[in-house]
Design a protein around this nucleic acid. Structure first.
Lengths: 285, 285
DNA sequence: CTTTAATATGTAGTAAAATTACGTAAATTA
DNA sequence: TAATTTACGTAATTTTACTACATATTAAAG
């Protein structure tokens, strides 16, 4: 199990801290990286408190002591949401915006990893296993996610298709029936067309799975929703991370389905892999 | 700048270490997480060497001393490649395969972040900026990546299209000319059709950009190649990470192009964003 | 095969760091 | 205002890490 980012925890707890603890917190938050490599003495001095105060502070946040606290802090800095400004700046060079964008994606994924509901994943896998037919729907950026999903689920030897055309989606939704699964992908969950399509499908007794934002109109309409709270995009230069998250969640679902199918299914996957070989140049290894 | 993962560094250095250093390395590598929270004394005991040997070991890897080493190790563990077996197991539960898949994706991205050539990114951005027209080509899984790229580059107010149909690709490639950029996406870089298409485009004087594996036939054919060495997929249950990597790299390129266009271009982006508003249900916030 | 030099490893002492126990001060409540 | 709780610091203790030095091991040269 992954724990939440220490820096966020401290920030959240800030109002409930007492005088000296607040002093310590401020010093740590002002430069967390420096804190990880300083001694308890120097930190106490900087915060103008005594050494035991720092120690107590650490224990308050479930650390065994100061060294353990530093360790946890260091891990937070490396993996978690970067505390410092990680937004792309108008005068950033390649060498600075490249890691920023990748880091930001990594952070989002780490967030999803810690927050995603395993129960829901299981429910969705259930529905997908039972499906006689699967339709993946998405518009705009989610269209390519749907397309990717089609590609992946094709391997399961059952009728799959993806559609990024509203009219087509409407028609399919209205002709759907029990046994059909409509997998609707939408970042916001508030695109009218998409919500309507989900409603139509639902009315016809089909299963509707949503990969979308929590508490959105689309989420309300679905049989099961895999909701992901991808932080909103504030920076003009920062790309939308939700597509990536959706793709990775679909990876998870694919794996879930594969595992449920059991080991007897593996030869089939191999066959598909092999079928592609003649289209490729041999590797010189 | 990101430094390389400490665990990898130690693994690589393993053959060049002397007896006691090897012992220390083995103990650390066998359970890096435990190492981060143990004292120099207990580690020395476990490795059956003296404390100074451990200390010397740390200094060899550019740490100030043992505590500093632990810190760096902790950071490596948090961000970098998980060392322990992170493969999906046939009897994994949702709660175990979900983080495994996400972690694996994160690790791959971290690797790309540290290895990607900024010079190449710059070169590709150059070409894209100069393009009169951009075609994104991909087959299979790369088809959806191409589609996503089209979606993103559409915002730049220049003719873009994506194609996952071989015949269409051939025709377009053969009618291309200077000023046209063909952006070819392929995981392996060895699909014959794709390589041929690249060759045709190249012969006609078009610029061909490859987002593919290094040292592949496709890479050889391109004007510029953004090569990514995504580790090969060994596990049957593990999804292919290259699609994700390609998407993120396209995010980077989009940002690169946006920045080059300068701040005058931002209002245009806003306009596109606003155009979608009427299609959405209002948020209740 | 010995001698010499270099490298590798360990011992013991020293310094630094962290933790604990305890006492005093401040704040809260009755 | 007294009693009680909570907050904080001092000083002693313990743990931890580091340094200087000595011994052992290995490699090289005679």
């Amino acid at each position: 199990m992954h724990s939440q980012n220490l820096i966020n925890v401290i920030t959240d707890a800030l109002p409930s801290l007492n005088k000296s603890e607040t002093k310590v917190a401020r010093v740590i938050l002002s430069d967390p990286d420096a804190a990880t490599s300083s001694s308890i003495a120097s930190l106490a001095k900087k915060a103008e408190v005594s050494e035991p105060s720092v120690n107590r502070f650490c224990k308050r946040f479930n650390a065994a002591g100061f060294p353990d606290f530093k360790l946890k802090l260091a891990k937070s800095l490396a993996s978690g949401i970067r505390f410092v400004n990680r937004n792309v700046d108008p005068d950033d060079e390649v060498s600075s915006y490249t890691p920023k964008i990748i880091d930001s994606t990594i952070n989002t994924l780490a967030l999803v990893r810690d927050k995603i509901s395993h129960m829901r994943v299981n429910q969705v896998v259930d529905k997908l296993i039972q499906a006689k037919r699967i339709y993946f729907f998405g518009l705009g950026a989610s269209g390519s996610v749907a397309k990717d999903a089609e590609n992946k689920f094709f391997r399961f030897n059952l009728p799959v298709s993806s559609h990024d055309d509203v009219l087509m989606q409407r028609m399919l939704a209205s002709t759907g029936s029990t046994g059909d699964v409509f997998f609707v992908i939408s970042h916001t969950g508030r695109t009218k067309e998409v919500v309507e399509v989900a409603e139509i499908a639902r009315r016809n007794g089909s299963t509707v799975i949503g990969l979308t934002a929590a508490d959105s109109p689309l989420a309300d309409m679905c049989s099961v929703t895999l909701d992901v709270d991808v932080p909103e995009n504030t920076d003009e230069y920062m790309p939308m991370a939700s597509r990536i998250v959706h793709l990775v969640i679909l990876d998870v679902l694919t794996t879930g389905v594969t595992l449920r199918r059991g080991p007897d299914f593996l030869p089939h996957l191999e066959k598909i892999k092999d079928s592609l070989k003649p289209t490729r140049y041999k590797s010189e290894s």
